[in-house]
Structures are given as C-alpha cells and as structure tokens.
C-alpha cells in the first residue's frame, strides 16, 4: 500500500497511523509535508479533495490540519493530518494542487492558520476586516451579539453540551 511506499522512501516522515471504519489516516510532521505529498502524488493520489482543520484547544499543538486525498485509479482514499501550534505556518500545497487555493484560504479565514507561499492568502468567507477567527473553540457562536440568543428556551450555546459532558 501507499503507506509502505512512503515509509520506504521517506523514513520517519509518518509520525502515527490509524485506521477507523475503513479510513486510513496518517499523521505527518509539518516540515516534511511537501515531500510526503510529492511521494503520494507519484503513487497516484492526484486529487486533493479538501483541506480543513480541527481546533483541539487543550492540546499543546492546538490545531489538526486535515487533508483528504483520492486516487482516481485505485479509488483509495487517504487522510493526512498535520499538528500545528498557534501561529505556526504550514507550507501551501497550491503548487501541487490547484484545489488547495481556496481550501487553504478558508482554513486561514476560519481558524487563523497561515500558509507560506500561497498566491493570495486572504479571508474567503468573512469580510476582510472581520475580527477573530470564527471556528476556533474560544469564539462564541453568536459572535458577541446579545440579541442573537435572547428569548429562547433551549439555547444553542455551549450549555447544550453539558448534559453529556
């Protein structure tokens, strides 16, 4: 499988690997991301479907940047995760995949994770001088607007999670 190829050609690049419900995930070091991506590109993973991120606020390396790739020939899927801390930049994949352009802009907009060598890294979904990064866990759902959650019985706010902590 492709993971054996990566381990053969780039020893030490893969930090962790797990399979869950048929999905293969590898955790890669940010510094070696471009090498790993070039290796799997040669193995046939030529479509980058999606770049997204998860905010694990209590961990030291706060964000998990997640890449989903598809091999059109063998129909295999691969998920690559890179753990980054607050303010640390990742290399952009726009030179390899054109679909990375807007996906990385969205991650920058909603999480605040910068990407180096991106042709135009600016906000995508929010307006240019929007303060903050909405999908971070410390950003409130109503964005600081007190009218938003007024007069409703079951609040959507973080209290909704307390029943099953």
């Amino acid at each position: 499988m492709v993971i054996e190829q990566i381990e053969a050609q780039l020893p030490g690049a893969i930090l962790d690997r797990h399979d869950f419900r048929g999905d293969t995930t590898i955790v890669v070091d940010g510094a070696r991301l471009l090498e790993v991506v070039d290796c799997i590109f040669r193995e046939g993973f030529q479509m980058l479907l999606d770049v997204t991120a998860v905010d694990l606020e209590t961990r030291e390396l706060r964000f998990d940047v997640v890449y989903h790739l598809l091999n059109l020939v063998s129909q295999d899927r691969l998920r690559i995760k890179v753990q980054v801390g607050e303010g640390v930049a990742l290399p952009s994949l726009t030179s390899r995949f054109k679909s990375a352009n807007w996906s990385e802009r969205e991650v920058f907009d909603l999480f605040g994770i910068p990407f180096t060598d991106h042709p135009g890294l600016e906000r995508l979904l929010m307006w240019p001088d929007f303060p903050g990064h909405p999908l971070r866990k410390d950003y409130p759902l109503d964005g600081g607007d007190p009218f938003c959650n007024q007069d409703i019985g079951a609040s959507y706010a973080p209290l909704a999670r307390s029943l099953n902590a």
């Binding site: 909405p134 950003y139 109503d142 959650n149 409703i152």
Partner: peptide, 12 residues
C-alpha cells in the same frame, strides 16, 4: 428573524 441560524454570521 434569522431562522434557524442563530450564529455569528447571520443577520437576525
């Protein structure tokens, strides 16, 4: 009234 979207991005 903003519908079901009581969020930071939707005008209520």
């Amino acid at each position: 009234s903003g519908g079901m979207y009581r969020t930071y991005a939707t005008l209520q």
